[in-house]
Design a protein around this nucleic acid. Structure first.
Lengths: 333, 333
DNA sequence: ATGAAAGCGCTAACAG
DNA sequence: CTGTTAGCGCTTTCAT
């Protein structure tokens, strides 16, 4: 069983300072004698040494941990984001601590407080509403970088996808392929700027290819991330009110899933003449026979940018460009 | 900005003990006078109090954190597992700390050591090989529960899926639907007992429905979780050596993805007469026109069982049934 | 009813 | 070259 610095010092009959210098490889710098060094080294090799990070954290007032509050992991985009963040952290000797908020503002608040009390050195947060974001942003005793969502608060550090641009790309591509079809848009989580931007981008892309999307063809209802079954119902409503659409855009993958689920449950399969478009990418979209266009967010870039930002904030380098925006790209099949 | 116990004590002109008793709600028990109590409460309400968990952790020699080392999060099963564990932890005031090993034994070892040095109270590990599992299991100064994989080491605490049973179910169902087709099996990560059990279960299920699977129809090659593109190549080999199969079982979702990817790249879509079967479930399997059978692992049950086990170990209650096995179920479409 | 003080394991300043 | 010591903020035991 591995020993602490003090125990090793006792065994070697030297002081803790000497042990620490050897263990931290500063024996050259402080000219520890070779005899002492090798005695200590021998004992470390024999018994092992486990540093007690907790004690070190307390003394240094930093923990080399970063917190991440994210809605869910079952959602591919978020799990990719976490994976990418975790790699960035590990490469810089940070440890990422992740908690899921299920887009519940109360839970989110509890989780961020908990992480701050655990003395994380910084915090990544995918906020679920304006108030939480505002509050956390003004709570300036821990560096915070907001991911994926910015509720329009001035001066906060955030890294988000350029949803308007992604929407525009999708709008253009759909517009070109409509060939007389009538397009419907199904969305959830409509209070998020993310979703509003996606829809606005889509509209302008469609407009630029000569298709004017009627407001009544846009259905924004309920939750997706926290409750994707809601999307099944919305699709059911759409189909019974307006018939099965021949062209459909969904605001995110859970919405897409809900829609397809409904169609399969009703018709045994996805009617093969529907033109489909969705935000978020997934390898499985390749396996659907219909034409599916999708907008791929760049989780890797978002993570990297966010990580650089938080490092700067931790090291007190002022960052003058707090709100970064990452482009996404269109995948045409 | 929130204050520490000491700072509050100074402001209230009382001792830290008194403050702590009020903050921890033990003021009744120790009969703190109402005057003192309300003075302290007032200061807490005004300035706020943030407990420094790091200091508490050091003193109490426990951190209320649990570590999780998992191959990847992009894999749905693992992200579901993490999500479920995180909920269990949160409900018992633990914080889960997750790190990804990408099934690299060296990285895995580094991550587990790192987590132990951070003084997690217990550790969940999806081990990537026998040696790591063996070593960690005998390293008995932290409670460890192994998830999803048990390399056949006696007496370790593990919670795994009953892969043989799941394989058997799939084997029976496939066998009944073959109708003269020749079945091929594609697998990766073949060194895992998980995979071996799945294949053995499958074989016996097929045998029980009168189909004897020839060994040369089973291709086990390379990695899936860490490198799913490898699966595309394996499928390419299979197709060029033996033709496009009319019945195919894959050992996990990444393998399935690779196979479908290859077929789509070659033929524009998945040939519609292939009967498909795979381990692991995903909502998107519903949207593939072919008949797809899948085996659904129960991430929620695994997490719950594992969490109960680690709590017992932390509280030193001997658990006499260390290796738990969770059934999976077949999804027929 | 409230306070004083020791100590968790580590770091860093200072002393020889 | 090596040792001593004072904290980091908290909990806990023992006084009063």
């Amino acid at each position: 069983m591995a020993k602490s610095i003090f125990e090793i010092a006792q065994l070697a009959e030297v002081s803790v300072t000497t042990v620490r210098l050897v263990i931290n490889g500063q024996d050259q710098k402080y000219r520890i004698s070779e005899k002492t060094r090798s005695k200590i080294q021998g004992i470390v090799d024999e018994h092992g040494y486990y540093i007690n990070q907790t004690a070190r954290n307390l003394k240094l007032r930093k923990t080399l941990t970063l917190g991440l509050v994210i809605p869910r992991l079952g959602n591919l985009f978020f799990s990719q984001l976490m994976e990418a963040l975790e790699v960035n952290c590990r490469n810089s000797d940070y440890q990422l601590i992740t908690a899921c908020s299920y887009d519940d503002p109360v839970l989110e608040q509890k989780l961020t407080e908990n992480l701050i009390q655990r003395e994380v050195d910084g915090l990544f947060v995918v906020s679920s509403d304006y108030d939480n974001q505002k509050k956390l942003a003004s709570n300036n005793h821990k560096p915070v970088v907001f991911l994926d969502r910015n509720f329009g608060i001035d001066g906060i550090s955030s890294v988000t996808t350029d949803n308007t641009q992604g929407g525009y790309l999708l709008g253009c591509a759909m517009g070109e392929r409509l060939q007389g079809r009538e397009l419907f848009v199904l969305a959830a989580d409509g209070w998020l700027p993310t979703i509003q931007n996606r829809i606005n981008g889509l509209k302008s892309g469609l407009a630029d290819t000569g298709y004017s999307l009627p407001e009544e063809n846009i259905l924004v209802k309920g939750l997706a991330i926290a409750d994707w079954e809601n999307c099944i119902k919305t699709m059911e409503e759409l189909c019974s009110d307006r018939g099965v659409p021949t062209a459909l855009v969904t605001s995110a993958l859970p919405v897409f899933e809900g829609c397809m689920e409904y169609l399969v449950s009703q018709y045994g399969s996805i009617p093969d003449d529907i033109l489909l478009g969705t935000y978020d990418e997934h390898a499985f979209l390749n396996f659907i026979p219909n034409q599916v266009l999708s907008v791929c967010q760049n989780a890797g870039d978002i993570a990297e940018t966010a990580f650089e930002m938080i490092l700067k904030k931790i090291n007190k380098e002022e960052c003058e460009e707090p709100a970064k925006i990452v482009k996404s790209n269109l995948i045409v099949r």
